[in-house]
Design a binder for these strands. Structure first.
Length: 150
DNA sequence: GCCAACGTTGGC
DNA sequence: GCCAACGTTGGC
């Protein structure tokens, strides 16, 4: 079982939205490196939910992966902001996962705390200028994060 | 295949 | 709202 970190702007989709919905198709990722991480996820993997573009940014909870290699339907929807007219219908570019709600942490693990605890090599989210929205988290780092959250 | 222009992300 | 970082696009 692997650990991941996935970002979302809470104004767009938050941990509270996921708690309400129970599961959600994680659509709209349009970056190849992030897509490759999504397609390498397996059932039962756990993912930290990170709120970006908010005050304070940080890890707010935990999700699990309940469905893998799901076609992202928004790539074929001209009305969607994630529409990708260059994605071939017979060889779609964008696959993702369905996530399930696991828990909301009692306190946000803020970006400041993350920077104080982990090096940029240990946790990519503290890398300067990092824009990747899906990234792996090493087991040891994940266990430390769970300890900080509880 | 290079690289300038452009668009987006995301912290501050 | 600003702007640094950086991925993508498109002209050549």
């Amino acid at each position: 079982m692997a650990y991941w970190l996935m970002k979302s702007e809470p104004d767009v989709y938050s941990i509270d939205d996921l708690e309400r919905d129970a599961t959600e198709l994680w659509d709209g990722v349009r970056n190849y490196q992030a897509r490759n991480f999504l397609t390498s996820m397996t059932l039962g993997d756990l993912a930290f939910f990170y709120h970006s573009n908010t005050k304070p940014p940080g890890i707010v909870g935990l999700m699990n992966i309940v469905e893998t290699n799901v076609l992202d339907p928004t790539q074929f929807d001209p009305a969607s902001k994630y529409y990708d007219p260059k994605s071939p219908k017979d060889n779609p570019r964008w696959y993702t996962v369905t996530v399930g709600y696991v828990e909301t942490f009692n306190t946000v693990i803020t970006l400041d705390q993350l920077k104080a605890t982990f090096t940029p090599d240990e946790l990519w989210v503290v890398r300067r200028g990092n824009r990747l929205s899906v990234m792996p988290v090493e087991d040891g780092v994940a266990e430390k994060l769970l300890g900080m959250a509880r």
